[in-house]
Nucleic acid binder design. Sequence first.
RNA 1: GGUCUGGUGGCCGAGGGGUUAGGCAAAGGUCUGCAAAACCUUGUACAGCGGUUCGAAUCCGCUCCAGACCUCCA
Length: 497
Amino acid sequence: MQTERYTEQELFLYNCLSREKERFEPMNAPHVGMYVCGPTVYSNVHLGNVRSFLSFDIVFRYLTYLGYKVRYVRNITDVGHLTGDTDDGEDKIGKKARLENLEPMEVVQKYTNDFHDVMRVFNILPPSIEPTATGHIIEQIEMIKKILDNGYAYEANGSVYFDVTRYSKDYDYGKLSGRKIEELMSNTRELDGQDEKRNSLDFALWKNADPSHLMRWPSPWGMGFPGWHLECSVMSTKYLGDQFDIHGGGMDLKFPHHECEIAQNKGANGKEPVKYWMHGNMLTVNGRKMAKSEGNGFTPEELITGNHKLLNKGYSPMTVRFFMLQGHYASTLDFSNEALQAAEKGLAKLMNAYARLGELKPGDASQLDVDAWRQRCFDAMNDDFNTPILISVLFEGVKVTNSMLAGQQSMNAHDLELFRSTFSDFVGQVLGLHLEAEASDGNNELLDGVMQLVIELRANAKANKDWTTADKIRDELAALQVQIKDAKEGSTWEHHA
RNA sequence: GGUCUGGUGGCCGAGGGGUUAGGCAAAGGUCUGCAAAACCUUGUACAGCGGUUCGAAUCCGCUCCAGACCUCCA
């Protein structure tokens, strides 16, 4: 009934720009514009990438749950940017195309499909708009023209570079990442092939490309391709306007990518583009950042099957999702077998209660203050999307649910309705956790029937005090990873994959 | 080298000047034919050294350790 929950909840989020937690006030409530940097599709996504998109999935879900009308834009980077740090480096997608003997756009399609599959498996919602860089070459050229007209860029040999020194006379370059331009100047390494740049800090808006480059487009400056940072400025502006509410991305994009984005936007239209900047932290393995270049990333397939040297078993997508949500998005999270196993059990406990909410019957008095408990769920999320706290509050709900199922606690009808809807909303809609299908897909009906029979036979044996038969059934099932749970009203069973 | 972040009990991970995080694991109890499950109870903690304070895990300084960014990376 109450869908405009934002009118009664106060959301605070940590703004990287101000380095403070701020009250979230959208520019045009109930509309919210959110942009998140998406993947570069030249290889399979790994779990570190997944964590980042999951973090913003939570933001998207919670804002939506609060009743905001969110336009969520997440791009696909399908222009191959340079592999190395020199200008003559090969571009990633072109390189992959040569290695796999594919057309560059085949590479792009292949890994875009993979990305979408992975997002679906982890129950990460699709964005409202998913624009591609190659689909916005014209707009990128237009933005470069504006920046040139405003004097913040210069052309050199068919390439166009952003003039950071010139820009920093009018604006604060380094504001987001807390860097000082003088320090950046003195610290930047001397790299080869940068003769065209007036200053090592300058970055490319457009790169001249010879015919050996597979991905190139005509422009006023000749054949070439757009610079690394430009697409995000262009596509966020196009779909969300010159100024919008939230911009997200991984911590590793803060500098230089996001800093350059701000510079491009301001250089083009003079306005501060983003009100709230949010950065998700890294997933680590043995304390080190999971990254393609480190070679310590797991693909989702390896994770689910357990087929990786660092994994001693497979874990379901929901286990991984839950594991990640037990940490706060702004903290690093270390990936380990022990932590995954703990998460697996914790999730089973949570989801078991979630699945049995329907069995709860209203009683007389309520021992739980349901209104206060519900508000604590909101409070957790209102405090910079603190999913670990939310989960801890939900576990209190698990205890209450189990106690009620065991007849040790009660709840009146009004409270029970609120309790159920709150519990299932926060688990399902906000955290995006769902029950995972049993391993025996398609045979569930048959299996259920067979198990009912087995449980009945065992109940008969128990009634006859035939403990040998009863225990044999229980133990043999246990060997098949099927656990029998006895309760006063009868037995239930559970299959552990 | 520069900039920044973090070091919490057996493990993961919140919090963050005085009051229980939570999950997993461990111990005891209730229930049970015995178990399992569930519920109840319990323990061990804030890297080290100084300082501020009536009081610090929480603030400040130093030390040690780890990580991130400074180059493509979520």
